[in-house]
Design a protein around this nucleic acid. Structure first.
Lengths: 362, 362
DNA sequence: TGGTACCGTGATAGCGCAATCACGGGGCTC
DNA sequence: GAGCCCCGTGATTGCGCTATCACGGTACCA
């Protein structure tokens, strides 16, 4: 354009810098494809974007040129022009937890299927600062939306205020966070687990809960309470763990001291593993003396000794659904929570009827 | 400054579209910051990039304007202009495996510390097609480099050819893949495990290996073989698993049929869990009748029954190192493999001296 | 005192793509 | 048979940022 209308080199100004390189261009751009195919860059763009109004013949020519040149569209340029990054961000906590990892995997697959990239930021500690940092980091990368995997409710309150602009959904956690959520009905799961033990004849059921500020832990605890209340059973003091087997073991040591404990609902499978070990170490057999129910159904649960009766959550499905929600929020502008999925009871061998000698309470 | 030399609207053409919006601009751009701070956009850019030649006073003014406007730099535009995305890609397999997940976490943290974003692509099945797809997807996103976590060697051969342009490193896997690698010395680990059992007096040690085409599995197997050879012990037939507890259980069932089996080195902890269960179900006690050593030291291993003797790998460190390698490759253009870390022996209760009645072989 | 060397800053020109508008040509309506 | 519209395509412009060069000033050397 500086040369305006004057000269003899129409291709000069626009194509100049692009075509200048003698021929050693390492990475081809759209103009290169266009030239090879004998069309304009715009047409190449249309082909790439599946725009309908391109003659099949032209399209084929362009596709061939793309193939020949091994051309790949520059996503930064595209993002700049469209103002869309086609990327969603995932904030996750400890992805070494099976549930988190499976959920992230679900997110990743669903997102990729929908044509989105996935950027991830994990936080080591679950406090507002870290979470905001992670979210900021993702937002700085122009993600179009955020999936927060299994958070603490408190942390979310913070987030909602801060992450201006980009839609957010929650995978796991409580459906009451005020954000669209894809979650399993933890309460129903907790109720189911507890009821199972009650049906087996146990007078009451003890509970090893997860961290107080995790919605999942809270929901399971509520379910346990309500099942107990329904059955008119007394509600024993709650023990707290941090989801780790180690914390479960510590709780199990406490529990084993009390002879009247005959049934324990543990808020996840890892802690259940710890509880079982502690029980056995204290000389109490599982399930003969003490029945244990876990939660999550991690792949190893079936190979615990005894194989663990537990409540299965489909974490991957959660991840998938949350992406569905997020895409709605991004594309339609609104999304409401997905209906809670009901976790499934998985009966194995870690529970038995009360009575053999479990009847000997207090 | 915009009033420059000409008229009253010199800002027109360049700043026009930016300043045109009456005042409802949802997202501020650099020009907005510049205007507010009374400087040029270039200066804002310099401040943002930590360029030294900006007067502290000016810098402060700019920073304040940024704060006031809650301005965030558009990363797509930056990437386009600099030709750098500041993003690295991670290709991982099943991140629900503890090792993979921990490694990815290490990558993520190290990358973020170094100022890089992390995009992730997981593959469901470990074949060349999927891996290439995942890598392509990442490359399409203009990642500057790729970390491939614990791959199969065969898959890597493919990848190396295909991913033109972006540097690649491997986290885990064999150091002989031809790519820079951060790996633990699997062979040393396997040797250590086997030797431990041999020292305990077992005549020989059986092995439940991981998938044949995983470098990790291969290395551990080689270590087992070499320890056996050194001790002059016979080398029993290898059993194969797929890393899952279920496959370990199946192998355990086989092993339990043979009364002479008194010591088993299992290629990961999950499979070890399965082996132990199968043994017990067959009436063979662990460790009294059969000693078992695992590999990895997943957090639950200490709470198996019996607590599992195993070989600890620091997966997170692997991830961290691989990022170090990758950044070298990106920034310096070259990187050689990190020295292999030697896995650490963790003695717990799943192994015992041979002899009680284990001596009664064949 | 002139020249050289900066230092702090601004104007300008792309980065590679897609949105917008423009345009020739064929089919359609009436 | 004239007008219309839409189809397929191209030229142009700008997304928001940074690289480059240019420029007035102060400092320093000769």
């Amino acid at each position: 354009m500086e040369e305006g209308q004057s000269g003899q080199d129409p291709g000069g100004p626009p194509a100049g810098p692009t075509s200048a390189g003698a021929g050693d261009r390492p990475v081809p751009v759209m103009a290169d494809v266009a030239r090879l195919a004998g069309v304009s860059a715009m047409t190449v763009s249309r082909v790439l974007n599946g725009h309908p109004s391109v003659r099949p013949e032209t399209r084929a020519r362009v596709l061939e040129a793309i193939e020949v040149l091994d051309y790949r569209r520059n996503s930064a340029a595209r993002a700049l022009a469209t103002r869309r990054s086609e990327t969603i961000g995932v904030v996750a906590f400890d992805t070494t937890f099976y549930g988190q990892a499976a959920c992230v995997r679900g997110v990743e697959h669903a997102a990729r299927e929908a044509g989105y990239f996935v950027s991830i930021a994990t936080v080591k500690v679950v406090d507002e600062r870290s979470i905001r940092e992670a979210a900021d980091c993702l937002v700085a990368q122009s993600v179009e939306g955020l999936v927060v995997v299994t958070p603490r409710a408190s942390a979310l309150q913070e987030l909602r205020e801060q992450t201006v602009g980009v839609p957010m959904v929650v995978a796991g956690g409580s459906p009451h966070s005020g954000l669209p959520t894809a979650a399993a009905d933890q309460e129903a799961g907790g109720r189911r687990a507890t009821r199972h033990l009650l049906f087996r004849g146990h007078e009451t059921v003890w509970h090893v809960a997860g961290p107080e500020d995790w919605d999942d832990a809270r929901g399971r605890l509520r379910g346990w309470q309500s099942a107990l209340a329904d059955a008119g059973a007394i509600e024993p003091r709650v023990l707290r763990g941090d989801w780790s087997a180690a914390s479960g073991w510590r709780a199990g040591v406490e529990l084993a001291k009390q002879r009247k404990v005959s049934a324990v609902f543990v808020s996840n499978d890892q802690m259940a593993l710890g509880v079982i070990l502690a029980m056995k170490q204290a000389g109490r057999r599982v399930p003969e003396d003490v029945s244990v129910v876990g939660f999550d159904d991690i792949p190893e649960a079936a190979y615990f000794d005894p194989p663990l009766t537990t409540i299965r959550q489909d974490f991957e499905e959660l991840g998938r659904r949350s992406v569905g929600l997020l895409l709605q929020a991004i594309e339609i502008g609104t999304a409401r929570s997905s209906p809670a999925v009901i976790p499934e009871f998985v009966g194995r061998l870690s529970t038995a009827d009360a009575g053999r000698w479990a009847g000997a309470r207090s």
